[in-house]
Write a protein that binds this DNA or RNA. Structure first.
Length: 272
DNA sequence: AGTGGCACCTGTGTGC
DNA sequence: TGCACACAGGTGCCAC
């Protein structure tokens, strides 16, 4: 489901109900996500939420009794619900707020991650957050940085853009879309991408992610914001999922290839 | 240090 | 209709 825009939309969706509110109770299932749920999560009972941030594809909830780190994996989803909504299949975690609302986490494939960090143990100082590359919207993500970083990688630019040590938040959909916008062939070796192209990459990554956030993210199968709304950026996808269709620029056929066990979509004519 | 392959898990669509 | 298989928005670990 979620790349950076979808996580940002989710974060904004829970913010109004969760920020400055009190967590009355915590509940989680006995099935584990990427890691098992820790009983320490109960430390968040009666905690007051002071901050909610997105870092890469992670959501960090800060309280006076510790931190909650949430990753949505492939199929994770947070919703804000009224207290009397019954649990559904694959609901695995929830915070019951003193307002009566519930923040509930559903994750079909359980590739997500929910971790607790103590008040004196910032998640920013620990894995996985401390190994992440720069935020795409930050000043430290610029053409100079990207060009230097790419020089270390011989693998394809597409796979390299999806590497969270290089830049966070660009997943399988937006990697294809960004490279199409930049007219870069996804199979190009990362260390062969010119500094000029790096400048274009930085600009296009920012533009596309920003536009997607504004449209509520991309809904391919099941993504929805915390309010249940679907994402409309799917209408702006030019290549992802468009195998066999005509390129909107040149009219030639969009191809699908596999790189690192993930599908890549591109226009062989526009992206040389 | 970088890289490819695989693992984690469930649901859905396709082709035989 | 049933079955086998491929594939899906992510990430971490392993051996090379």
């Amino acid at each position: 489901m979620p790349e950076l825009p979808e996580v940002e939309v989710t974060k904004r969706g829970i913010e109004r109900d969760l920020l400055h509110s009190k967590i009355k109770d915590i509940d989680f299932s006995d099935k584990s996500l990427r890691e098992p749920f820790s009983p320490k999560l109960y430390n968040l009972k009666n905690a007051t939420v002071s901050n909610i941030e997105r870092r890469g594809k992670y959501i960090v909830v800060t309280t006076d009794k510790g931190y909650l780190l949430i990753h949505l994996g492939m199929t994770g989803h947070l919703s804000v619900l009224d207290g009397d909504v019954p649990k559904k299949l694959h609901d695995h975690f929830e915070m019951i707020l003193s307002s009566g609302k519930i923040i509930r986490y559903n994750d079909t494939r359980r590739f997500g991650l929910i971790l607790y960090f103590g008040p004196d143990d910032s998640p920013y100082d620990n894995r996985p957050l401390n190994e992440l590359g720069p935020e795409p919207f930050s000043d430290s993500f610029n053409a100079e940085y990207l060009h230097e970083k790419l020089s270390h990688y011989k693998k394809s630019i597409k796979q390299t853009l999806m590497d969270s040590a290089v830049v966070v938040g660009v997943g399988n959909i937006y990697a294809s879309e960004v490279l199409f916008s930049c007219r870069i062939n996804p199979q190009t070796a990362a260390n062969k991408v010119s500094k000029q192209k790096c400048k274009v990459l930085v600009d296009e990554i920012r533009r596309i992610l920003k536009e997607s956030i504004e449209k509520g993210g991309t809904t391919i199968r099941d993504f929805q914001g915390a309010d249940g709304k679907l994402g409309y950026f799917v209408q702006n996808l030019n290549v992802y999922g468009h195998e066999g269709e005509k390129c909107c620029i040149c009219g030639s056929e969009i191809k699908k290839i596999v790189q690192g066990q993930r599908s890549t979509f591109y226009c062989p004519h526009c992206q040389k």
